[in-house]
Design a protein around this nucleic acid. Structure first.
Length: 472
RNA sequence: GGUCCCAUCGUCUAGAGGUUAGGACUCAAGAUUUUCAUUCUUGCAACAGGGGUUCGAUUCCCCUUGGGAUCACCA
């Protein structure tokens, strides 16, 4: 049987890094096996629904190239793929489960349950409705009484199941609580919808956060009662912000779209998160999605939580930026230029200089700010021991350079470099004694992306001469 | 609190009884470079603690400690 996996997010507004990683692993398990990757929207909690959230999910998956084979927008043989459109299915199965003895009708209100809990302090909810006979329950329902369908757990002993990453897990049935499967509003809870859908959609591998480990036996019980085959479970460890805290939007942590907005490349983010809790067993770290499809192995998934290290993502993003085709980088850089650059400069030259130096695209604004506006700087900047320059030498070099540059016809990095070097040679100066002062005059900064000739070529002749005159 | 899970450099990790405990990020030093960055070289840095098992434990078992998860008409 070919693997079928599903990514089943709730449309609550944004794409979590952890969610995206789960989706990635699901996608890889399916693709590695030549199977299908299904997208299903879990919108059974109408209170949490956020307008436009589904689009974010679509866009994110598309942006990273994880195309789904079946889903709400493209359909498939097992639709609909939005849970709110499957209500009658859940209801049918829920009642069936009651008939099979796997669940029962419950007439307690939410308050009843809460009250009992408050009194008993951490003690499991004991449902008085369990004792109501099926006939009587049906009568009460017919009379229009509000009800929920609650899972019935009468088993004793331990539940045992296998997980691809955690191995065999044993949980006492006594620990399981009889949760609501079908809410009073007729919507199913995750605990039920998830099982029914995974079965009906022929999902073979369920990948989800390890917070679901403890409720997995409840789902297995439902599978068992229906006589269905449970899926292969792959519970993955959390992605953490630090040792104590999960990465979450609530703590103000970056979501996928936040990272992209900050200038991280989608493919770099995807590559990075693939390696959070997983490794190929080789020393390769840079992977395209295609490459991951070939080497991914869920058995190599790590059990312990992984802390999201923005530092390493930065480095990896830098690798991706450097590897970009120049044209693509230039296009991305242009977006940044438009944020702050009004001056007419040689943007292509600027991009050439920037590409090997930028780790995150948004840094461009800061790194290249001096192009737009020459910052205030002190004379002291012209003094540099290593370059063997001081204010006197700088002044002399700039005075020598000015007329030569005024005469220069071809304004390119190469011609400028030759010209400035020529000045040094002709006047018995070291290269740095000319180049360094020119660079300072042009930028007002101690460190800059690119040297004097490169910056001059970016600024253009007029602005270059203006800045040199100004410094003199 | 009950239950379940986890534990190698600061971080991501390799390791599956015998290794100088390897790699990557970060940091530091050096080389190259018209500053910076890139690139290259080198360095700093880890098996949480205690018991077993074994000729031998980072590796297997137990305990302790630390951390996480779960106990919703949320997913």
């Amino acid at each position: 049987m070919v693997a079928r996996t599903r990514f089943a997010p709730s449309p609550t507004g944004y794409m979590h890094i952890g969610n995206l990683r789960t989706a990635l692993y699901e996608y890889l398990i399916a693709k590695r096996d030549g199977g299908q990757f299904v997208l299903r929207i879990e919108d059974t909690d109408q209170k949490r629904y956020v307008e436009g959230a589904t689009e974010i999910i679509y866009n994110t998956l598309k942006e990273v190239g994880m195309n789904w084979d079946e889903g709400p927008d493209i359909g498939g043989d097992f639709g609909p793929y939005v849970q709110s459109k499957r209500l009658s299915i859940y209801q049918e199965y829920a009642h069936k489960l009651v008939e099979l003895g796997g669940a029962h009708y419950c007439f307690c209100s939410k308050d009843d349950a809460d009250e009992q809990k408050d009194e008993g302090n951490n003690i499991k909810f004991v449902d008085p409705c369990k004792n109501i006979s099926l006939d009587e329950a049906k009568k009460r329902i017919e009379k229009g009484e509000s009800f929920v369908i609650r899972q019935t757990i009468n088993k004793e002993g331990k539940s045992l199941f296998n997980d691809v990453v955690y191995g065999d897990i044993e949980i006492d049935y006594d620990e399981l609580d009889e949760g609501v499967l079908l809410k009073s509003d007729g919507f199913p809870t995750y605990n039920f919808a998830n099982v029914v859908d995974d079965h009906l959609m022929k999902i073979t591998h369920v990948v989800r956060g390890n917070e679901y480990i403890s409720s997995t036996p409840k789902y297995n019980l439902i599978y068992e009662t229906f006589g269905w085959e449970p899926p292969v479970y792959v519970h993955v460890a959390q992605v953490m912000k630090d040792a104590q805290h999960k990465l979450s939007k609530r703590n103000g942590d970056a979501s996928f779209q936040d990272l992209v907005a900050k200038g991280y490349l989608p493919e770099a983010v995807l590559n990075y998160i693939a390696l959070l809790g997983w490794n190929p067993g080789t020393e390769q770290e840079i992977f395209s999605l295609k490459e991951l499809e070939e080497v991914f192995d869920a058995n190599r998934l790590n059990k312990s939580p992984a802390i999201f290290d923005i530092q390493k993502l930065k480095w990896m993003n830098g690798c991706y930026i450097r590897a970009l085709e120049f044209d693509r980088f230039h296009k991305l850089a242009e977006i940044q230029y438009d944020k702050f650059l009004t001056r007419d400069v040689n943007r292509v030259e600027l991009s050439k200089v920037l590409q090997p130096r930028v780790e995150v695209l948004n840094d461009i604004v800061e790194i290249a700010q001096f192009i737009e506006e020459l910052p205030e700087y002190s004379q002291e900047l012209f003094v540099n021991k290593k370059m063997k320059t001081d204010v006197e030498i700088a002044k002399k070099s700039l005075e020598l350079a000015l007329p030569e540059l005024e005469k220069l016809e071809v304004w390119s990095n190469e011609s400028l470099f030759e010209c400035l070097k020529g000045i040094a040679v002709d006047n018995g100066l070291k290269n740095g004694q000319v180049l360094y002062p020119v660079r300072i005059a042009l930028t007002g900064l101690e460190t800059t992306p690119g040297g004097a000739s490169e910056i001059a070529s970016i600024l253009g002749k007029e602005e270059t001469l203006r800045r040199i005159r100004k410094s003199l």
